[in-house]
Deep mutational scan, measured.
Amino acid sequence: KAKLLVLLYAFVATDADTICIGYHANNSTDTVDTILEKNVAVTHSVNLLEDSHNGKLCKLKGIAPLQLGKCNITGWLLGNPECDSLLPARSWSYIVETPNSENGACYPGDLIDYEELREQLSSVSSLERFEIFPKESSWPNHTFNGVTVSCSHRGKSSFYRNLLWLTKKGDSYPKLTNSYVNNKGKEVLVLWGVHHPSSSDEQQSLYSNGNAYVSVASSNYNRRFTPEIAARPKVRDQHGRMNYYWTLLEPGDTIIFEATGNLIAPWYAFALSRGFESGIITSNASMHECNTKCQTPQGAINSNLPFQNIHPVTIGECPKYVRSTKLRMVTGLRNIPSIQYRGLFGAIAGFIEGGWTGMIDGWYGYHHQNEQGSGYAADQKSTQNAINGITNKVNSVIEKMNTQFTAVGKEFNNLEKRMENLNKKVDDGFLDIWTYNAELLVLLENERTLDFHDLNVKNLYEKVKSQLKNNAKEIGNGCFEFYHKCDNECMESVRNGTYDYPKYSEESKLNR
């Protein structure tokens, strides 16, 4: 008799109507990190870190770059004969040098303040090359056809396309004075040089004057150069050297050249137009028929994500570079809930034993079982409120962090190594801060989002509990077992918050 009662009780308990509160689960393989956990499985997430590029040089917003090819900045601007293909260059979106560009200054020497000139050019998007001192009329008392084997072109001695090597005419090199007034309405880049012979005999042979000088002056520039005559090792078949100089001439300003020898005179100059998204990159990537809004030396990035880990040097509207390998923000729920887990921000989770793959029309909802059958029903209101809140948060985070910009490298010469090392340390410090901030932001927001979901499920549970009161009992896994019969209409009233407690209280009292 006792065995019969136990079996009867078990049958009745199993047959009781139930309603459970749960949440969506799926077959997603997404994982995120939080402050407290690593690799948390979630139903949905968004990636904030771009880690792919196309490996190509592309047009930037429809404008092609200027590819210097086998030449570098120095060779292009001075007019190395091997860089003749660059003479027609007028406009570009950015400038590309190759790491091993070999054609710079063909006659050995240095372009002074080269690093600063590169910085200036990094904001130039177009130029006009014009004859600042016409070759045939500007130097009537001097020979202007100086050439050298060091600047050979097609097997013949030649010289820079933008400079003139002035030497004596006959047996004399009379003092020369020439000036140019900038009437271009924009900055003009003027380049010139000073020749330093290897011996007094060479000085006399070329310029006749043993104590020659070169003077260059404008409103913002004033220097006097004296040739340094000295024996030097042979470089590119030359014992002599040429140093090259430049200045930016403001609109309306005048530049005056005065010399008694050794002047490498300007022939062509450049009127410059600035462009905020221009820059110089060093890259071996090849040019393709493609378009982008962000270019790196590795390749083009076409992404609206706020961060990238491809390269710190970028041109155009680019994500911020960070050292992170993963920045994924959760938008959905835990896919593998932890039992009795309390989140960092106070939300209680884990009283549900598992997510439901059968509930596909919402994030949170119900599963019921009664004599009429069983089924899932999503709670659309709480789901939609959660979707709206999380979507707004993700968009806000992306908008705040998605300050796209150009980031170019800084140039230092060989004598500025300590400054370069200090600059690298400062840049590394800023990069570490950006990386830390980005990672911390994602970790915190992921923790908040998961706790937010847990709290929403808990609130749904409490909503049902407050309606049923003692007409049902909690069975410990997020479910309630009714003390009365609850048909589909009754189940719907529980879900929509209109459950009639008094209607079922007498039946429940008897069954309790």
Rank of each mutant, 00 (worst) to 15 (best):
K1C: 12
K1D: 01
A2M: 14
A2T: 08
A2N: 14
K3W: 12
V6I: 14
V6W: 12
L7Q: 11
L8S: 04
Y9P: 02
A10H: 05
A10T: 13
F11N: 01
F11M: 12
V12M: 05
A13L: 13
T14N: 05
T14F: 01
D15R: 12
D15C: 08
D17S: 03
D17Q: 08
T18Q: 15
T18L: 15
T18N: 14
I19M: 12
C20V: 11
C20T: 04
I21G: 01
I21Q: 02
G22Y: 05
Y23I: 10
Y23R: 02
H24L: 15
A25T: 07
A25R: 00
N26K: 13
S28L: 02
T29D: 02
T31A: 09
T31L: 13
T31C: 07
V32M: 04
V32S: 11
D33W: 07
D33T: 09
D33A: 03
T34P: 02
T34E: 04
T34D: 04
I35H: 00
E37M: 03
K38A: 05
N39E: 11
A41L: 01
A41G: 11
A41C: 15
V42K: 11
T43S: 07
T43H: 06
H44Y: 08
H44I: 01
S45A: 10
S45K: 11
S45F: 13
S45G: 03
V46N: 01
V46C: 05
V46S: 01
N47A: 00
L48V: 05
L48K: 04
E50A: 15
D51C: 06
D51G: 12
S52F: 12
H53A: 11
H53Q: 12
H53S: 08
G55T: 11
G55P: 02
G55R: 11
L57M: 11
C58N: 10
C58G: 06
K59R: 15
L60K: 04
L60C: 04
K61Q: 13
G62H: 15
I63E: 09
A64V: 05
A64F: 10
P65S: 04
P65K: 07
Q67G: 09
L68D: 11
G69I: 01
K70Y: 01
K70F: 00
C71W: 07
C71M: 15
C71G: 03
N72W: 02
I73E: 00
I73G: 02
T74S: 10
T74K: 10
G75K: 10
G75L: 07
W76K: 04
L77E: 05
L77V: 14
L77M: 14
L78S: 02
L78F: 04
G79A: 12
N80D: 06
N80V: 06
P81D: 09
P81A: 06
P81F: 03
P81Y: 04
E82M: 13
E82R: 03
C83E: 05
D84Q: 13
D84Y: 09
S85H: 13
S85A: 13
S85N: 10
S85R: 10
L86H: 10
L86R: 08
L86D: 12
L87K: 13
P88G: 12
R90D: 06
S91W: 04
W92F: 15
S93N: 02
S93W: 12
I95M: 08
I95E: 03
I95C: 10
V96A: 10
V96K: 03
V96N: 05
E97L: 08
P99K: 11
P99Q: 11
N100M: 06
S101Y: 00
S101I: 02
A105I: 05
Y107N: 10
Y107A: 10
G109P: 07
L111F: 13
D113N: 14
D113Y: 08
D113L: 12
Y114F: 08
Y114H: 07
E115R: 01
E115T: 02
E115I: 01
E115P: 14
E116C: 02
L117P: 05
Q120K: 05
S122Q: 12
S122E: 13
S122L: 06
S122P: 01
V124Y: 03
V124I: 15
S126P: 00
S126L: 04
R129M: 10
F130K: 07
F130L: 05
E131F: 04
E131N: 12
P134E: 14
P134M: 01
K135G: 12
E136Y: 08
E136I: 06
S137F: 06
S138R: 03
S138V: 12
S138G: 12
S138W: 14
N141T: 04
H142V: 10
H142Q: 11
N145L: 03
G146C: 05
V147E: 06
T148M: 05
T148A: 00
V149A: 15
V149F: 15
V149K: 04
S150H: 11
C151E: 03
C151A: 03
S152R: 13
S152I: 13
H153K: 10
H153C: 11
R154V: 13
R154A: 11
R154Q: 13
R154N: 11
G155K: 13
K156Y: 12
K156L: 09
F159D: 03
F159Y: 11
F159C: 08
Y160F: 15
R161F: 03
L163T: 01
L163R: 01
L164Y: 12
L164R: 05
W165V: 03
W165K: 03
L166A: 05
T167M: 10
K168D: 00
K168Y: 00
S172N: 13
S172G: 08
Y173W: 15
Y173T: 06
Y173M: 11
P174T: 06
P174N: 11
P174C: 02
K175Y: 12
L176K: 00
T177F: 11
T177N: 06
N178Y: 01
N178M: 11
V181P: 02
K184G: 08
G185F: 00
G185I: 00
G185Q: 05
K186E: 09
K186N: 15
E187C: 05
E187N: 07
L189I: 09
V190R: 05
V190L: 15
W192R: 01
V194I: 15
V194Y: 02
H195I: 03
H195P: 02
H195N: 09
H196C: 04
S199F: 08
S199C: 09
D201E: 15
E202V: 05
Q203W: 04
Q203F: 03
Q204R: 01
L206A: 03
L206P: 01
Y207H: 12
Y207S: 06
Y207I: 03
Y207T: 02
S208G: 15
S208V: 09
S208R: 10
N209G: 07
N209T: 15
N211F: 11
N211P: 12
A212N: 14
A212T: 14
Y213L: 01
V214S: 00
V214N: 04
V214H: 04
A217N: 00
S218R: 03
S218G: 13
S218L: 04
S219I: 03
S219G: 10
N220Y: 11
Y221R: 09
Y221V: 11
Y221S: 10
N222A: 11
N222E: 11
R223S: 09
F225H: 14
F225R: 02
T226E: 13
T226C: 10
E228F: 14
I229T: 10
R232N: 08
R232K: 14
R232D: 11
K234H: 02
V235L: 14
V235E: 08
R236S: 12
D237S: 10
Q238L: 09
H239Q: 15
R241F: 02
R241E: 06
N243D: 06
Y244I: 06
Y244G: 04
Y245T: 03
W246L: 01
W246Q: 01
T247D: 09
L248F: 08
L248W: 02
L249T: 06
L249D: 02
L249V: 15
E250W: 11
P251K: 03
P251T: 02
P251D: 11
G252D: 01
I256Y: 10
I256L: 10
F257L: 15
F257Q: 03
E258Y: 02
T260L: 10
G261P: 07
G261D: 08
N262F: 11
L263F: 08
I264M: 13
I264H: 05
A265Q: 10
A265N: 02
P266C: 04
P266Y: 01
W267F: 06
Y268N: 11
Y268C: 07
A269F: 00
A271Q: 09
L272T: 10
L272E: 01
L272R: 01
S273A: 12
R274A: 02
R274N: 11
R274M: 12
R274Y: 12
R274V: 05
F276A: 13
F276I: 10
F276P: 13
E277G: 13
E277A: 14
G279L: 08
G279C: 05
I280S: 04
I280L: 15
I281E: 12
T282K: 09
